[in-house]
Nucleic acid binder design. Structure first.
Lengths: 331, 331
DNA sequence: CATTCTCATGGAATCGTTTCCATGACGGAA
DNA sequence: TTCCGTCATGGAAACGATTCCATGAGAATG
């Protein structure tokens, strides 16, 4: 592979001059500029990133740590973040922690070793030792989606309260009084925020305040199905079910189908926090609060770049959109 | 940040010795070993990756270029590939090409500059200039999912013929004669292989060979919906529809719903190449050929690592599983 | 006891850049 | 004409690791 030395030799200049031309320094004559660029093109020169990073003490690489890229929320977020980063000349390295603190720490070590310039972190639990170390090393960090206790990095996440309000308004419009709510873990800030917003807002929207109708799973289908069954076991028969995330709604639907049968299930309306394109094909179709995952990713990258460049970044709540697929709505 | 020099000084040894200890060379005494390790731990030393990469002329980084990480096939693949790579001490950098040759080339330049040790490539079209250059530079490369003309890198992909055979067998068992097939672009090897396998196998499975029932879209929902409408416009009324990928099936369903109404649509069975968990909730439920994206990712990484380590790798077709969700099957 | 061999060690070179510093050419001002 | 300032340039240092090579201590062998 051609090095800058080869380019300089071919152009008949010193390496210093070649470097200045290639990095766009103004301290270059038109003459050497054209000769260096020509030589570089002829040799197919591509700068050695590690060498440059070593010397400049920055890598132009961002680390993105999510719990699971298979989750559509994160894959949309990651896609948008990667595009935004690349548009600014940054590369993204992606890693999954799989909701496991040990894996998260292993990844953070790798990131540290790669000397990433900044970290986009979607936390999954409390602070871990490696994270603590990174925070102490004042690496620029932004949080995505979930907050984490004792870390005051800027947070880019969904407007959970606003999204729940949209769902509540829809439930009221549809005339539902007996609504089941399946939440997520209280230890996740998203779970807690949605749960709190629901409890705080339900009465004002004409929804029964019987807590037998409220239960929580683990944000996964199986846990949600169990929570749904617990609610049914208490003798409740809701006319609508509100699932606090996509998997939760899926699990709740499955439980209702299995327990009550397809016919009775089709009389219950589901509304979900998190939209999935397949909701349109359920019977009845499922309405949903749609997260703007791409915008969260882009805003996170922009905030992180601001921090990297010595500026400041402030937390931001990204608005949701309500997708109304109910019978009366304009299809 | 602590450097190896700091570690050596604190341990009272030369940097060479510290390096040998930290990289596990056998040429070290137990004494210096323990002192260096202690010093490293006390200082929280984490090796500078770029410096190491510069000297060793390898980065332990793999590049993964997919068309769109939001596609569940790729997000499952990427998840598994990342896990497998990390288990072998490699880091993955991910990029999306969005089915755009210019973006793909831009990404390949970034990869080249990062001096990745190997490339996992899911191609989207013909060879591009940058790809040509990379192939010439004999960077280890494996292809995922799709092949590409004129490139003889090993391919790790779905067993398309086998998957189509599973679907055909199911169609026969269900007694379908009038089956519509919505394919994908012939320019994608996956589209062509599935199409060819279907045409070659339909007669033997008792399926009508009228080509009015066959059309193709672009592997996206909208294009598939148009293809479905063209079939219906020809006056055909299939009892089953076979979509050549997930989005295609989705689009075909949407078209059938819109054109014939929910009631008539519920009389048509859909079978899909690519499984999606929501298929279970359609009415009737959609059966599907499930491809083993995680195994494709893992096999691809293993093949690539073999190439990197100077070995050889051979193409591999990963078997599919048929998910039968039809009425008679054990639910 | 002398010699050779083994092996851990220190020191230095090296990887490919960027950036600092000194130099020299050139132009403009006095 | 002389002097100063500007500015492109060449050369060298520096980034932080790995690895080569020479050295010296100690063990093993005769």
């Amino acid at each position: 592979m051609a090095t800058i030395k080869d380019v300089a030799a071919r152009a008949g200049v010193a390496v210093g001059t070649a470097s200045r031309v290639l990095s766009g320094s103004p301290q270059t004559s038109p003459d050497s500029r054209s000769r260096v660029l020509a030589a570089a093109a002829e040799l197919g020169y591509i700068a050695n990133g590690p060498a440059r990073s070593l010397r400049r003490a920055r890598t132009d690489v961002l680390g993105l740590l999510v719990s699971d890229i298979r989750n559509p929320f994160f894959s949309e977020l990651a896609h948008a973040a990667e595009q935004e980063a690349r548009a600014h000349g940054y590369t993204v390295i992606l890693a999954n922690a799989n909701e496991d603190a040990a894996q998260a720490d292993a990844v953070l070590d790798v990131f540290a070793s790669q000397r990433i310039d900044g970290l986009l972190l979607s936390p999954q639990g409390p602070k871990t030792p490696r994270l603590e170390a990174l925070l102490a090393s004042d690496l620029p960090i932004v949080l995505l989606n979930r907050s984490i206790e004792g870390v005051d990095a800027p947070l880019y996440g969904t407007d959970n309260a606003g999204g729940v309000a949209q769902a509540l308004k829809w439930l009221q419009r549809r005339g539902h009084r007996d609504v089941a709510f399946i939440g997520g873990p209280e230890t996740f800030s998203t779970g807690a925020e949605r749960h709190d917003a629901y409890l705080a807002g339900r009465e004002a929207h004409g929804i029964c305040t019987d807590d037998a109708l409220v239960d929580a799973g683990d944000f996964l289908a199986d846990g949600a199905a169990e929570a749904m069954l617990r609610i049914l076991d208490r003798g409740a028969l809701p006319t609508a079910v509100f699932g606090a995330n996509g998997q939760t709604t899926l699990g709740a639907m499955r439980a209702v189908h299995e327990r009550l049968g397809a016919e009775a299930a089709s009389l219950i309306e589901f509304v979900s926090f998190d939209d999935v394109e397949w909701f349109a094909f359920m019977s009845p179709p499922v309405s949903a609060v749609k997260n703007d995952a791409p915008e969260i990713g882009r805003a996170g990258v922009r905030g992180l770049l601001a921090l990297i460049n010595g500026g400041t970044a402030t937390s931001q709540r990204i608005a949701t959109t309500f997708i109304d697929r109910s019978a009366g709505s304009a299809a």
